[in-house]
Design a protein around this nucleic acid. Structure first.
Lengths: 347, 347
DNA sequence: TAAATGTTTGAAATCGATTTCCAAATAAAT
DNA sequence: ATTTATTTGGAAATCGATTTCAAACATTTA
């Protein structure tokens, strides 16, 4: 294959000017004559010139690429967040490499390794459920690559201090508080909680919000009704069946994902318990399917696209201007919204 | 910031050898002593050396990166396909840049431009619904970047001839045929078809399969029951309402996406038509939510993950070995499977 | 022992865009 | 007319890993 790549040198010789001038023309330097810019543009198109970003990145020391790691791209929360991230990155002329951890600590580590080798400028990550150790996150810091956690986050060691650095989340404690309060207002009084792993702070916070709401309303916290680490549908189903089969079953569930809601709904159906009359349910994430089930599922909409946009903006504004990882960090809180559907609305 | 990037030269001087040798050591050249490899590895880790892929790519002329463009990453079909692509690319040490077109021709063009500038080796694309012109696809070819279409595809000009080059799809004609046949077997006899834009071949094929099945079973094709380009839920809803309100309404719908099924279901609900007794529905893609609706929705599972794997394998095997875009092209057909749920099952 | 072969290692060129540092050319000011 | 600014453009260094070519060394063969 004798075909050589077209470079700015080719454009330069054809036009009788130098490569440096061509480079400046293509990059719209103010010092370059308008006519020349036009001329270079035309010639570039004619020769089918293709900018080589490897060369540019090598010279400039930045890849203008952001790596995003999420557990699954097919969950509304994450794909919407990615859509938001994408928009802002596009505005800033950065491109995105998206990786999935599939909720596995090991795969998350591999993804991080890949992104480091790819020389991304920053990694936006929502950690996997398995992730208990900040090992790989510290790896990122160690390689002087930016790190911003969104939604699910964990602390890591930054030199001597322990920090969460830059992160963007919802006000999980407060939102959970409101959800539980809504259940109470509807007359539910024995509310169970199904959470996620306690080593991830959003699940801690959601549990905290639940506990606060219970206590603040003069009720007693019942240990048996508070279950951690039952995030998937199947576990939620089993747990719900168990709780609902006791002599003093709960009359409502506040859960930390819509998939858990599905499991609870399934359990109720199987046990002949009617939702919402005998059992209320509120979940988290406002997945697409929550509007489709019978009854439809109440859920907390995390405004995920906005959360994504804020994550990216945090990078381009605060992070870059405050010394990156070495800066003092920043935690952003994104507003969310309780969507009340039929699963928590009693007549 | 006085901190300089650690390079192989730093490793080399610390170890008293040359950079070229370090490079070979890190890349496991057989001629390099095992002990040296170990030594270099250790020193690299100690200095926190980070491989610079921009430099490597520049030298090697390839980015080992695949660009993937899909309409939406949050539709099961696409995210599963991406999961398959990811697996195979990972095995071959390639990374992925994922872009969304959001079903817009313009955004698709921008994504393609980005990927070209990023120097991806190949683009795997499932075109947007709006895409009627192969303009941007030809742009890819023109830049000597690989092109493989999957699922939704379109023809483009390759020099003198018109071709579809490399593509991976299901056997849409046959699969649609089977779906319609299943409806007939259940006793439905006046089956409507809701399709997508006719300029995209999978929608043509699905319509063709529908038509063949109708004719082969001694029925007459009724033009009014065949509607193209009503791919989203809302359009499907409106069209279904219209068709169901005529004096001779259809008693079943075969549609080309599960979102259309949702629209049809909605229409039936609104008009008080019971599904599946009075109206059968079969859709396409086997989205997660199809199992959750009441009644659950029958759908064609496209084995999307396998489709994704095959797309990537087509690249690493056939494409690269047969002269790339200039090769004679290849069209792969992936098996799919009809999932019969309640929406098409009469007692 | 000398020649031939094979193996390990180094020097230097290379990939392509950017950018620093200058020089020439032009315009403006004295 | 001379000096001072201001554009306009070029030469060459640079980013860091890879790779070609060849040298140095070791081993085998005749």
């Amino acid at each position: 294959m004798s075909k050589k790549r077209v470079t700015i040198y080719d454009i330069a010789t054809e036009l009788g000017i130098t490569a440096s001038y061509v480079s400046r023309a293509l990059n719209n330097y103010p010092s370059v004559n308008k006519d020349i810019v036009e001329m270079v543009r035309k010639k570039a198109a004619e020769l089918n010139y293709k900018h080589n970003s490897s060369a540019a990145n090598l010279r400039q020391g930045s890849s203008k690429t952001i790596g995003v790691i999420v557990p699954h791209i097919n969950q509304s929360f994450f794909s919407d967040a990615i859509a938001g991230i994408e928009e802002v990155c596009f505005e800033h002329n950065h491109s995105l490499i998206i990786c999935q951890s599939h909720e596995s600590f090991k795969k998350e580590g591999l993804a991080i390794e890949t992104l480091i080798r790819q020389n991304v400028d920053c990694i936006f990550i929502s950690i996997s459920l398995e992730t208990q150790s900040p090992k790989y996150l510290e790896e990122i810091i160690h390689h002087d690559i930016g790190l911003i956690q969104f939604d699910r986050s964990i602390e890591y060691n930054q030199g001597s201090e322990c920090t969460k650095g830059y992160s963007v989340t919802n006000n999980n404690t407060q939102d959970s508080y409101s959800a539980v309060k809504q259940l109470l207002k509807e007359g539910y009084s024995r509310i169970a909680f199904l959470g996620g792993p306690d080593h991830i702070s959003i699940y801690q916070d959601r549990k905290q919000g639940y506990c606060n709401a219970i206590r603040d309303n003069g009720l007693v916290l019942i240990d048996d009704l508070v279950v951690s680490d039952v995030l998937d549908e199947e576990n939620a189903f089993k747990t719900a069946v168990k709780l609902l089969s006791t002599t003093e079953p709960p009359d409502a569930f506040f859960v930390t994902s819509d998939h858990q809601s599905l499991g609870v709904l399934q359990a109720a159906k199987q046990l002949g318990i009617s939702v919402p009359d005998q059992l209320g349910i509120i979940g988290y994430a406002n997945e697409f399917f929550t509007a489709l089930t019978t009854p439809s599922l109440s859920s907390i909409d995390q405004h995920s696209k906005s959360l994504g946009r804020h994550t990216a903006n945090l990078y381009f504004n605060s992070f870059l201007k405050n010394g990156g990882n070495k800066g003092r960090g920043e935690r952003l809180i994104i507003q969310s919204e309780l969507i009340v559907r039929n699963s928590s609305k009693r007549k």
